[in-house]
Design a protein around this nucleic acid. Structure first.
Lengths: 248, 248
DNA sequence: CCACCCTCGAATGTATACAAAGTATTCTGG
DNA sequence: CCAGAATACTTTGTATACATTCGAGGGTGG
């Protein structure tokens, strides 16, 4: 599960970046040759990718690659926002533990520091990403619902973290997103602390959906028509000169 | 992926029914001996089970079985209700297609027929289960969100369909559940047809959460104290003399 | 007596050979 | 020339042998 992860990881990256056509038959041998390993680790990788819906497996007939469109990424983000909203609502209703509150407030401080001078350096993007992740993951964990946690984690197998990509395309958009993000985090936390589950859920959901704005923004930058949602995601992102690097 | 599914299926069933202790180390060889097959299909099965969170895998250190508690099943149902609610809301906002509407109305008719005379026969339970499934799955499919669909599907790897089990324990409970279920399906559909996304979401979520009532009902029947949520689920269900048989 | 290191063992990771299943091609009969 | 069946080939499913890695246990030196 570790060294094989390299195989898995490479294959995954290849698929996400369009090394194979959508719907293309993916024989084990083809992958073996492409990666220079035997069938055993390839089979394991394909099984995992199938559980993430990146390839589609049929009994005794191997796998085909499932092309990821912009709409797929959009849809995954919608689901994520629904789940994160639910998590916030649950935490609000059950009450916020002291240490959870501390962690969230600390992440707000970090986030606030960053919001003061937005850069597009790798350092900044990493720090921003980290502070943002702490906030979101802390809330999900605090819901103490393993299925909820896992569902969101599984979604991350899709390329859901697109802000980082989008930021690179437009500094003003980055500044605006970071600053409004801070305000939204604050209002989510306030709602959770006041025990208002409904408000916390809606605020968190709305905030989470901001990722969709990033997609629309890229559409605008690239001047794409309304049919862009059917585009392969890697081509969409490729328009910015960036390749797809998803979590895990 | 087909014949190996037998291995997967057997192992899965064994785990859900408590053939192994929670936290027990599950070496490949042990499973090989138990099922009489070689390590290759066992590895595949374990990989899939790990993606379903039924076993926990660590790099180079094999797997341990993750005991499923009542709380786990509870939590999975909470997530399912959130997702199904979101699906209903999305469908309501985007408008209900004609064929979707037809399918839903037909399922309501079928459901209505069943609600008139509730039995506990296998036939009845199968029919009820089917009509119910059509309603829920049609809505989720109609949302046209692959991630949403897959997320719910993945949750089904947990034993989420508990009504069938619960019905067997109490005829009055079954009657009441079926009849209120019909009314709830009707109001969900009405909200969707009127385009009221918020109402549809809340009604569907509330309806979906009725599964949780089933769990509480079993608790009552068995006379368990509040600590029952930490019980292994198979023991909980075993109190009714029934073994765990989950979807797929 | 304790701490550190070394060695041994058990279990996973990988490669390959063989079996089974499915698909495509070809050959034969009408 | 076409239809159907048999055969050959491609590809997945399974079994097993070998390599690697991690952990446990014992032994040695301080």
């Amino acid at each position: 599960m570790s060294q094989e992860k390299t195989v898995y990881s490479k294959l995954r990256s290849m698929i996400l970046n369009g090394a194979f056509d959508a719907g293309e038959r993916l024989t084990e041998l083809k992958v073996c040759e492409a990666l220079g390993v035997s069938r055993t680790p390839v089979r394991a990788a394909l099984l995992q990718l199938a559980s993430q819906n990146l390839v589609i497996g049929q009994s005794n007939r191997g796998y085909t690659v499932r092309g990821i469109t912009v709409e797929d990424v959009w849809g995954a983000n919608v689901v994520r926002s629904v789940l994160e909203g639910a998590a916030a609502g649950m935490v609000a209703r059950e009450g916020v533990d002291g240490d959870v509150r501390d962690t969230l407030e600390q992440s707000l401080k970090d986030y606030g520091q960053l919001a003061r001078h937005v850069e597009l350096s790798d350092d900044f993007l990493n720090n921003h990403s980290a502070a943002n992740r702490v906030f979101h993951e802390t809330i999900v964990s605090a819901s103490k619902n393993e299925s909820l946690f896992r569902s969101i984690e599984t979604l991350a197998y899709m390329p859901v973290q697109i802000n980082r990509v989008v930021f690179a395309s437009d500094r003003d958009f980055a500044i605006q997103t970071v600053q409004s993000g801070l305000a939204e985090h604050q209002s989510v936390l306030a709602a959770m602390l006041s025990g208002d589950g409904m408000a916390a859920e809606l605020l968190m959901r709305t905030h989470s959906q901001k990722a969709l704005r990033g997609i629309e923004h890229v559409q605008g930058v690239l001047g794409l028509g309304p049919e862009y949602r059917q585009m392969p995601f890697h081509k969409f992102i490729g328009g910015l000169g960036i390749s797809v690097v998803a979590a895990e």
